[in-house]
């Protein structure tokens, strides 16, 4: 690969000495944890106006679904990080993640205006 090996002998294994895949995997983990905190805060808000009935249940289901989609996308990307030359981030994954984040913000706005 171009300019990648640097001076000195290559290590016997194909391990990346900069641990790039591991660092990227941990960055994904941090991001799913952030999304989990946001989803939990949304759930806490929903519990406070729990007498809302069906509407609140629908909002809770939607928030849970968005969070689940976020975590599944991240999990698939983290599994791709297992190789030592991981492929690039698929643009579709990036767009779907942004969609999930915007949906969380939208859920927040709806819950706020209702409560």
């Amino acid at each position: 690969m171009a300019g990648g090996a640097g001076p000195g002998p290559r290590p016997a294994s194909d391990r990346d000495p900069g641990l790039q895949p591991e660092r990227t995997r941990l960055a994904w983990r941090r991001t799913t944890l952030s999304a989990t905190v946001v989803a939990l805060l949304a759930g806490r808000q929903l519990l406070r106006n729990a007498e809302g009935g069906a509407v609140v249940a629908a909002e809770a289901a939607l928030t849970g679904l968005v969070w689940f989609g976020f975590v599944v996308l991240a999990h698939r990307r983290m599994r791709a990080m297992a190789g030592c030359r991981p492929p690039g981030l698929p643009p579709r994954t990036a767009l779907l993640l942004i969609g999930c984040t915007l949906a969380l913000a939208l859920c927040g706005a709806v819950i706020l205006l209702q409560g």
């Binding site: 952030s34 905190v37 806490r44 969380l104 913000a105």
Partner: peptide, 8 residues
């Protein structure tokens, strides 16, 4: 996500 969480 932190800003959205801050909003909540």
């Amino acid at each position: 996500l932190a800003l959205i969480g801050g909003g909540f």
